[in-house]
């Protein structure tokens, strides 16, 4: 028995049961059967033709006019058949697109992957988690001789355009190596690249810094990025890492201010994305004080465990639903 014959038999059974008993159960079975028809990609006009065939078998003496009316109905349903097939092909296309986005997302991860380098005097912890498939946050470490360059950026505008923009940033940064030494000049140059190349609604916030292990200074500059913190071990106090400057991509002539901080043993440099401070919970926003309190709670642990724990607690507060990408980087001076 072919699949089609099986369907005809089943339809005949169901309709006979219904005509005889007029029961709710029989109707319900009909509903279930339609799901099976959809699974087997049987179109609406095929169902009508199935119905006609079965009615012929069940009622050979059916009124001629009635018979003709079914043929008419069949013609009317053909339009629905087209719509149905179009829907099918759109669904296939959507699945294809989704899998392409998956591929793009994993490619983005690979392309932008930045290894966390080993630096003798620093314990480094990094976490970066996207809210959706594509991450709009970006971080980058480059070891330049002895010095460590670190950047954290937030690309405004979400999804694929932001991801593409991020690749541009990465390659622009890679092509400006001599400026890695001067964060404020690096930002100035990146600003030119971004301003000329992004959509008017898009912009990028970035903090770029350079840790010099020879004299233990951290020089940095910011382009409209959420301020980080510096933890001062000697005073057991967190200070805001203010870095004034306009976001990248808005003003062609922007310049950026250089900052420099001395880092003592036990001090921590904390960089973050605004996904960290824009966390929303059922009780409202998470304030910077609360972030500091979370860092303080876990700061005796190794840097990687610290950032992991802070993320887990914030995730719990947001009921495990990130609204924004989340990036937190901690550099702790150990010797």
């Amino acid at each position: 028995m072919t699949g089609k014959d099986a369907i005809i038999d089943r339809y005949q059974d169901l309709i006979t049961t219904y005509i005889k008993g007029k029961s709710e159960t029989a109707l319900y079975k009909g509903q279930q059967f339609s799901r099976k028809l959809i699974e087997q990609q049987i179109s609406p006009e095929d169902v009508i033709s199935l119905h006609i065939q079965v009615m012929h078998d069940l009622f050979p003496d059916m009124d001629e006019d009635m018979r003709d009316s079914f043929d008419f109905l069949l013609e009317v349903m053909i339009g629905y058949g087209f719509a149905y097939r179009e829907h099918q092909s759109l669904r296939d296309k959507q699945q294809q697109l989704e899998s392409e986005i998956e591929v793009a997302a994993s490619m983005q991860q690979t392309l932008l992957l930045s290894d966390v380098p080993e630096v003798d005097c620093l314990d480094i912890g990094v976490i970066s988690v996207p809210a959706k498939k594509m991450n709009g946050d970006y971080f980058n470490f480059v070891k330049d001789g002895n010095a460590l360059s670190v950047a954290v950026a937030d690309i405004i505008g979400k999804g694929i355009p932001a991801a593409l923009c991020m690749s541009m940033i990465k390659y622009a940064m890679d092509s400006l190596p001599q400026q890695q030494q001067k964060p404020h000049l690096l930002l100035e140059n990146l600003n030119h690249v971004v301003e000329q190349n992004v959509h008017p609604n898009m912009f990028i916030t970035m903090l770029h810094g350079l840790y010099n292990p020879d004299n233990h200074t951290f020089s940095y500059a910011g382009a409209g990025h959420e301020p980080g913190f510096i933890y001062r071990a000697s005073e057991d106090r967190f200070e805001d890492m203010i870095a004034k400057g306009i976001v990248l991509g808005v003003s062609r002539t922007a310049t950026y201010q250089p900052y420099e901080k001395a880092i003592e043993i036990g001090d921590m440099i904390i960089l973050l994305s605004d996904g960290v401070t824009e966390c929303r919970t059922s009780k409202g926003f998470i304030e910077r004080d609360e972030i500091v309190a979370l860092i303080r709670k876990h700061m005796d642990r190794p840097a990687q465990e610290l950032v992991q724990s802070v993320f887990e607690e914030l995730e719990k507060l947001q009921e495990f639903e990130l609204r924004d990408d989340f990036t937190l980087i901690v550099l702790k001076r150990v010797v």
């Binding site: 937030d154 405004i156 959509h199 008017p200 609604n201 912009f203 976001v247 808005v250 605004d274 924004d324």
Partner: peptide, 15 residues
């Protein structure tokens, strides 16, 4: 207002 909102004002400013 989040950063996407801010982006609208940036676009409007340029325009």
């Amino acid at each position: 207002m989040d950063s996407t909102g801010l982006g609208i004002f940036v676009g409007a400013l340029k325009s």
